[in-house]
Structures are given as structure tokens and as C-alpha cells.
């Protein structure tokens, strides 16, 4: 675990806790983005700078970005906040 990986790991953990602790959907979304950036950076600095690492980081980054955009679209579709609990009871009403 070289030094930059540790910094990226810290960012991941911060993002993780923000995504769970986040108050509203937006709060959680921000947490997820932070965590995403952290993991991609972590992957990027992980291996010796060989084309493989670069390729993987690129691919992982693109897919993560896609997911986050989809999450953003869903968040916008839901007007109002998302319930905290198991998401069944309120949904039924």
C-alpha cells in the first residue's frame, strides 16, 4: 500500500460514510461521488504505471460515471425526499 493509495483509501472511507449518513438523496449522492473518485484514484495509483493500470482505471471510471449519472436521473425523478426506512410501507401508501 503506497502512500497515495492510503490517501485515496481515506477519501473512499469519507465518501462511504457520507453516502450512508447523508440526510437527503442529494447528500447521499454527493457521498457516492466522493467515494467513486476515491476508488478510481486508488486504482490508478495502485499498480506500476503500466498501460494495463491506465486501461483499467479508464474503464472503471467510465462505468462508475455512468452509474452515478443514472443515479442522478433517478434522484431528479423523485420529487421530495426518500424515506429512511425499508422503503415498503410508505411506498405502498
Amino acid at each position: 500500500m503506497n502512500a497515495p493509495m492510503i490517501v485515496a483509501a481515506v477519501v473512499v472511507v469519507v465518501g462511504l460514510s457520507a453516502s450512508f449518513a447523508g440526510v437527503a438523496i442529494r447528500g447521499r449522492l454527493r457521498g457516492l461521488v466522493t467515494m467513486g473518485v476515491g476508488t478510481v484514484v486508488m486504482l490508478g495509483v495502485a499498480g506500476p504505471t503500466r498501460p494495463a493500470t491506465l486501461g483499467m482505471t479508464l474503464m472503471a471510471g467510465i462505468t462508475l460515471a455512468g452509474m452515478l449519472v443514472f443515479a442522478r436521473i433517478l434522484a431528479r425523478l423523485i420529487d421530495g425526499d426518500e424515506p429512511d426506512r425499508r422503503g415498503i410501507d410508505e411506498a405502498r401508501r
Binding site: L16, F20, A21, D84, R85, R86
Partner: peptide, 15 residues
Amino acid sequence: EDRLTGWRTAGALYV
């Protein structure tokens, strides 16, 4: 069950 599937508790449990 409700508490367990809440975000905060789930997050803590996950970590």
C-alpha cells in the same frame, strides 16, 4: 426490521 433497513444503521453494520 425497520431500523435495520434504515440507511444509517445499515451503513454502520456494513462497515
